[in-house]
Design a protein around this nucleic acid. Structure first.
Length: 627
RNA sequence: GCCGAGGUAGCUCAGCGGUAGAGCAAACGGCUCAUAAUCGUUAGGUCGCGGGUUCGAAUCCCGCCUUCGGCACCA
């Protein structure tokens, strides 16, 4: 039975281009996972988008004298291009600035508010005297009241390590322009996380299949749950859906609150865009669906505690959870919802159209939260400001996506921090990817193409022929199990080991010698190698989609085993349009199972799958870093 | 400071209660179909330090050293 698998990928923040550490942590792993499950015949929905609200984007905009939307537009484009070029096969990669996302976010907020899970509280906040903008704690600097250190930050003193409150700093100043901040009382909304404490504790405690660090970290975190602020004093965000706030420009929903809702809103957008507006429910309201979230370790609690808390609170309520707009927009709530959405022109189009009568069903909680560690760069932390950074775009402009995907999988930060160095990148590419897998494919295809032109008819298989075939074909089970368990590094290692077995087999059999005396035996040896390559092609497809597609074609097969992605433009009610990264993956032909190697099928002229890199690129890239 | 994760061969990492592993780098040999690719052999570690539990610990517990992450208004 095919399963419904939601692959929910962390939303890259659109205040600049993303570096390879970001795609190493969640982009490539999530894509491998999604492609594997598609090969298994499961119904995969892979969603994400650019995260476009929040203070850093407004600051970047101020710096350039343009609007926050300008910044978000620019980097949403850049990031989308990067993900496309890396071959990340999202069903929908959208943005948090769509009307759809605003509507879903406001529904979540309003529903939680109506249910009493959102509290109101007056707090003291810092504001810039020059711009009137809010200053987050870390953007206020001053003298530490405890140790006297002159450049303490509002949230913490880097000298004595004590946690601070910006109000207590002596001679506070704005980190942005040095002006003295103004402190004033402001009302905020807080998510009542303690209300979910027991349920979260029981739920997390029972998730035995999570990676241990994710589970223990989360369990520890919820020991001391406090209400968490979900609004900010800033003009760039989703409007607060309450009559007294919805039109105000000085207070919006906190970016993290809306960002996690993106998983749901993007699923709904996907369903709408393809003309089946209810289809998202097969993932979100089906108890059999499994949700996998991919992110870096700094985001764990947002996905294991805060978002699940929001989902628990929302339950089967709200416009989306209840199964239909009509069911929840009953007599009592019809009016507030009108106010709620009055900034939108056409609410109806955004709401489910035919869900009336569907039983209220709570939205699904995460099944697994797959968190990665961090990638470092030549031994140092990535830092855009200090120039310790390699942008995805930069790498892809000079090297193949599959080379980068290979490195980020085999040497990525799956279980612990790992280091990217150009020397390792070149070595992994040349000595592993090219030498083991690329070379096996190349020597096999060129020999067969040259000597037979098509897949040769084998005679009876010898014991060693059968043995190597059996070992390689065992990969469907062994590699499949590793992939299903999100153990990507081990899975790729196993695939490489199996490819190596075939190289050994060929060295022992020496078909290039045999062919001079016994053409039929040589044909059998090459058939055996081809049959292994034919299966290995499937194993490598999730990891290396571009080269696997080429191999698929060289073997004489038709159709896409890993086909093209596409951008589509969608226009919403307001008339504003946005670009979505998507693709039609249902027509792809590969299956994660043994398939016949058709004897007599003509091969297409093979070319090397991968490029060997000159050792000089190490020096060149290091020089580029220094410059 | 509190919480958490890591410190294993020259390098990058896997193993996480049962005689120390892989790849690369190093040394030697075979092969020459293949992107001078490949195949084989050898060498290389008191598994951060100190205690403890156990028949047995890299693997569990305690302490210390060290690196990194989180600690509510950066995402």
């Amino acid at each position: 039975m095919p399963e419904h698998i939601l692959v929910a990928v962390a939303w890259p923040y659109a205040n600049g281009p993303r570096h390879i550490g970001h795609v190493a942590g969640f982009g490539v792993p999530s894509d491998i996972f999604a492609r594997y499950h598609r090969l298994r015949g499961n119904h995969v929905l892979m969603v994400s988008g650019t995260d476009e609200h929040g203070t850093p984007i407004t600051l970047a905009a101020d710096k350039e004298g343009i609007t926050a939307r300008d910044i978000a537009d620019r980097y949403s484009q850049v990031i989308g291009d990067d993900l496309f070029n890396l071959g990340l096969s999202y069903d929908t990669f959208t943005r948090t600035t769509t009307e759809n996302h605003y509507a879903v976010t406001q529904d979540l907020f309003k529903t939680l508010y109506d249910k009493g899970y959102i509290l109101r509280q007056e707090t003291l906040g810092a504001f810039s005297a020059t711009t009137g903008r809010t200053l987050p704690d870390r953007y206020v600097e001053g003298t530490c009241p405890i140790c006297g250190y002159k450049d303490a930050r509002g949230d913490q003193c880097d000298n004595c390590g004590n946690q601070l409150d910006p109000v207590d700093l002596i001679d506070p100043r704005s980190k942005v322009d040095g002006s003295t901040p103004i402190f004033k009382e402001t009302e905020h909304f807080l998510l009542d996380l303690p209300a979910f404490g027991e349920r979260l504790s029981a739920w997390i405690g029972s998730q035995d299949h999570w990676r241990p660090n994710v589970r223990s970290f989360s369990l520890n975190f919820i020991k001391e749950l406090k209400p968490r602020s979900i609004t900010r004093d800033l003009d760039w965000g989703v409007p607060i859906p309450l009559p007294e706030y919805v039109d105000r420009d000085d207070k919006k929903i906190y970016v993290w609150f809306d960002a996690v809702i993106g998983y749901l809103s993007a699923s709904i957008e996907w369903a709408n865009n393809r003309g089946t507006p209810e289809a998202w429910r097969d993932w979100w309201q089906s108890p059999d669906a499994r949700h996998y979230y991919f992110m870096g370790k700094d985001n764990i609690v947002f996905h294991t505690v805060i978002w699940p808390g929001m989902l628990l609170g929302y339950g089967a309520g709200g416009v989306y959870g209840g199964g239909s707009a009509a069911a929840t927009v009953g007599a009592q709530q019809a009016e507030p919802l009108q106010i709620l959405y009055k900034t939108l022109d056409s609410l109806e189009e955004l709401l489910p159209s035919d869900g009336v009568g569907r039983p209220a069903t709570p939205l699904q909680l995460p099944y697994n939260v797959v968190s990665s560690e961090f990638l470092t760069m030549e031994g140092k932390k990535f830092s855009s400001s200090r120039g310790v950074v390699i942008y995805v775009n930069d790498v892809l402009s000079r090297y193949d996506a599959d080379s980068l995907r290979y490195f980020l999988t085999i040497a990525g930060p799956e279980n612990q921090d790992t280091d990217f160095t150009w020397a390792e990148f070149v070595r992994r590419n040349n000595d592993e990817l090219v030498a083991t897998w690329g070379n096996l494919v190349n020597r096999t295809l060129t020999n067969v193409y040259k000597n037979f032109g098509s897949i040769p008819q084998p005679a009876a298989l010898s014991e060693s022929d059968a043995a190597v075939i059996a070992q390689v074909e065992g990969g469907f089970a062994s590699i499949g199990e590793l992939l299903a368990g999100a153990r990507f590094k081990a899975a790729l290692t196993e695939a490489m080991r199996l490819a190596g077995l075939v190289n050994i087999y060929l060295s022992e059999q020496e078909p290039w010698k045999v062919i001079k005396v016994d053409r039929e035996r040589a044909a059998t040896i090459w058939y055996t190698a081809l049959r292994c390559v034919h299966s290995l092609r499937i194993y490598f497809t999730p990891f290396l989609p571009f080269s696997s597609q080429k191999l698929h074609e060289y073997l004489g097969h038709d159709g896409f085993i890993a086909g093209p992605l596409e951008f589509k433009e969608y226009t919403e009610a307001s008339g504003r349009s946005h670009r979505v990264l998507t693709g039609d993956y249902t027509g792809w032909v590969g299956r994660w199972e043994l398939s016949d190697l058709p004897v007599g099928q003509a091969l297409r002229e093979p070319k090397p799958l991968f490029k060997k890199l000159d050792e000089k690129v190490v020096e060149e890239e290091l020089a580029r870093l220094g410059a």
